[in-house]
Amino acid sequence: MARNLSMKDAINEAIDLEMTRDPSVILMGEDIAGGSGGQGEMDAWGGPLGVTKGLWGKHKERVMDTPLSESAFIGAAIGAAACGMRPIAELMFLDFMGVCFDQIFNQAAKFKYMFGGKAETPVVIRGMVGAGFRAAAQHSQMLTPLFTHIPGLKVICPSNAYDAKGLLIQSIRDNDPVIFCEHKNLYASMADVPAEAYTIPFGEAAIPREGKSATIVAYGLMVHRALEAAETLAKEKIDVEVVDLRSLSPIDMDTVIESVEKTGRLVAVDEANPRCSIAADVIASATEHAFKALKAAPIAITAPHTPVPFSAALEDLYIPSAARIADAVRKQVK
């Protein structure tokens, strides 16, 4: 039975279902229950935004608050994964990756290859990404290009509650390390979500809107901006197709190229900084493989090459807007 569920609740439900199904699934992170060792309530927070609220009550010792010690607990999650567990480690804000990145990109990502195929590391590292929360430069980044660059990692960034649940369950069951990027400004977004467990395979883009005259490729929050732009453009008789990548590694370039071959125009939208971004990657690939189909130069709409600013006045300028996306398409269609 499908219910209208927020992305936050869909993520909670995905973890709950998998912890119930598979005793090797464990959850760890800072304040994911909250209240450990104190005199007050246990499960006081359920994560800083309450995403994991209630899971401690159901799964007790398999839901572990950690000390503020990212290298140690992220590494422990990876080590436990290499020893047969299926840990989900929450990094709270993925910006904190800086302090524990070695464990992720030098250890988890490389075990299988370095060890000649003889290791599996089924760990999920999930956390918040993205701007718009007035959380400033160290709590707002879209670091997806950084993770996507690393062979051995899989990188997922859902745009809606339905995809979030299916992709997270797939991440937990997947035998490779997965970086699961949750856009904090999408936690409240609602979608019809089946109550049952289901999986969405990696490397399959979604097409939330079909169209003939231009392709907008986006992921995460930017899918919504792209759809908003498409809505505006529809009133101008510009029929836009929106591709939601949702899985950045592996990436479904086939769907992007098919779409570009149909429309002849490509705008790639990325909340990340422009250099070596997902948008740059998509445009490079599409240009290489669908050059003859292009009727206009592809355009990347990204954040500027700056840290994320604090002031709302600046942050709103930083995040790619529907208006900028629509303008890019107009420029191509002219």
Binding site: I26, A72, G75, A80, G84, M85, Q103, F111, F115
Partner: peptide, 25 residues
């Protein structure tokens, strides 16, 4: 044998995970 390691000190968090897995098992 969870690996020799080119990153100094990297084995310590990993072995905490191994210990955790042993504890759960």
């Amino acid at each position: 044998m969870m690996g020799a390691n080119g990153i100094l000190g990297a084995g310590a968090p990993l072995i905490c995970g191994a210990g955790l897995a042993a504890k759960f098992r």
